[in-house]
Design a binder for these strands. Sequence first.
DNA 1: AAGTGGTCTAGACCACTAC
DNA 2: TAGTGGTCTAGACCACTTA
Lengths: 248, 248
Amino acid sequence: MGLSRSSIGTLYHQVFAALREQIESGDLRVGDRLPSEADLVEDYGVSRTTARRALDELRRQGLVRREPGRGTFLSSPRLRTNLACLRSFTEEIESRGYEPGARLVARVASRAGKEIAAKLEVRVGEEVLCVRRLRLADGRPIFVCDSYLPSGRFPELKEADYSVVSLSRLFEETIGRKVDRAYQWIGAAAATADVAALLEMYQDAPVLKVERVTFVSGDLPIESVTAFFHPARYQHYNELSLSPGEAG
Amino acid sequence: MGLSRSSIGTLYHQVFAALREQIESGDLRVGDRLPSEADLVEDYGVSRTTARRALDELRRQGLVRREPGRGTFLSSPRLRTNLACLRSFTEEIESRGYEPGARLVARVASRAGKEIAAKLEVRVGEEVLCVRRLRLADGRPIFVCDSYLPSGRFPELKEADYSVVSLSRLFEETIGRKVDRAYQWIGAAAATADVAALLEMYQDAPVLKVERVTFVSGDLPIESVTAFFHPARYQHYNELSLSPGEAG
DNA sequence: AAGTGGTCTAGACCACTAC
DNA sequence: TAGTGGTCTAGACCACTTA
């Protein structure tokens, strides 16, 4: 039904997206059984391998659990993300089939205090730009992010338009350097009044707090960002394995 | 060669393990090309699907990157070390220079519900052991963890002493298998009354919630654990690099 | 032109679940 | 007995890279 074999994307991703849409629309409730692999073969006219890959993708993202002999069941409609590799928040939202959005909330020129100066590797008092944005997935508020940008080091940043969706792409376009690596801390915090309002939560409700410093090629910090995530709409996911050398 | 089609494990896991062993033995250097899918088909006498799944598993763990038209290459050490590596909570506490401690709070024999059964890959109703422990660093409460253990699969777990500090070591000693990999979700939640009391916090205060499923060699789940961290005393840290697929 | 990984098909057998 | 997911095979075509 409605699959394209030309340029829309892979078949399994189209099947995956169709299922995800069913989940998001509310047709399926938590615990409900999804179509079996055989059902998908019939409904979409694809092979079992393709149908299976779509269901496996849903599982990998934590949306469903699969029980041998029983079926595939909706577990939880949360957004989940894999930390194992560096992806911009925009890429994470996109890769899960949602339409990423952003709303510029504030934009203030300022000067670096000790904390920000250390993170951005600039002198205290150096010019920085503070940008607060509300990030959305399919129009729903997912997180608030406060970005601190070294506008002293990269003057191009002062003129940029921060109502765009992806800051990573903005960095690449305006200063011609690609995002390369990042480090981050993940913790929990109580929502302040302003964050709570943006995320449609109560003040002091728990939020997931991510502090990230991002580097572009040349190992230069380009952004220090603190993000507050709606805990019911977003969880970080990752997979861990033994580091080489200790494996058995 | 040396694959078994009986009881050692899936074919793709055996191929995967053979390749990982080659990597860890040092036969392959950073940037070296691994055997192609076609090579593995010949060498191990498996289908391309099976060979491919082994290589995909290596990529999923960040050990290799795959380039269409070129081949599969061993990732750089920095990429590998930056990717999430599996450490027990005990190791994490130790690496931060604290003296790890543990207090056994509860220990109950029970039966697996749907959620736990799916995570531990056992049947619903199968015997499981629930263990709640309070974890300490230099005597201060850091987190509460609720472990669900497949005592039906590993009867040795029933007799074990859970007042020890490291469950990973306990697993290795009692069942003779090493912890191999894990996956986890990280989110935020409000502290329940019992958790808050153990962590010396107020009820409903925000806590960092980590749900982890740990596997031992043979790819068998050994533990499904939910941990609640004191947000002022613990934050999750990690470093991110470009994904193996896009890395330069 | 040959080789590589990415995708897709159309089958097969198995263990398990539910009726 | 029928249906489910887990694994595996033996092909196929494609876009891409390298020589």
